[in-house]
Amino acid sequence: MTASLTPSHGQGALIEMNQVGKTFYSASGPFQALKDIELSFYRGEFVGVIGKSGSGKSTLVNMITGIDHPTRGKVFVDGIDIHAMPESKQARWRGRNLGVVFQFFQLLPMLTLAENVLLPMDFCNMYSPAERPERAYALLKMVGLADLAHKLPGSVSVGQQQSAAIARALANNPPIIVADEPTGNLDLKTADSVYNRFTALAAEGRTIIMITHDPEIAGRLTRTVTLKDGEIINQSSVKTLTPAGNTTNDQGDVNR
């Protein structure tokens, strides 16, 4: 992986959403979940997508991860139209470029924490098989779980589960991390440490997109995008955590 400069927004957006709209059709009629969203994300940003349930925030993030397809418009990640990719290719791409953190952690219960972290590397064939365990261990150590590496998820606390889930999201060293209400099931103190972790990751040059319904954490974010009824109703200005020109060794670069 080549170390490259962390670009500011001036150098172009990492993620670009062009007129993205999404309509769901159900028995009660069509429902517009997203209404022509025009939005960009840059390297080093820690963005909060804020809104109530039903505001369309999860749908918006699903458009970026490729988990759901837009009805209209295009999404470019580092210049690639991700919805033009076939699904099998998308899976590999997602595994290498996106780290996903879920509200309910979603660790696989039959694998130990270390094995959970190893899994994305196995699936996407990243790093040599010999390197992988070392890397998994290093990531678990970083989130303070070195001692629990060989425990099953069921036998650690929810906070520890979420830390492991973050370590898993970082397994393939992705430039983008998407987190869906990552602190929704955590107490305040644990939630705080999760925010700190994300801030540090953004400072490394990664782009963190976090879904939340809690407007109070705005202070911890570099930018907030507020959604209501499928539209952006409020957006703060773009600023990144990493000053241009600062290089780090373990920083995300888009994996092809």
Binding site: Q103, F104, F105, P109, M110, L111, D122, L152, G154, S155
Partner: peptide, 29 residues
């Protein structure tokens, strides 16, 4: 909601299975 943290890991058989490691994660799953 969420992944059910189920009974895996409780029985002796499971603990024995946990010791099988060097076969690659997908096969392990």
């Amino acid at each position: 909601t969420g992944i059910q943290i189920d009974e895996f890991g409780k029985s002796r058989l499971d603990r024995r299975l946990e010791k099988i490691k060097n076969i690659g994660r997908p096969l392990l799953i």
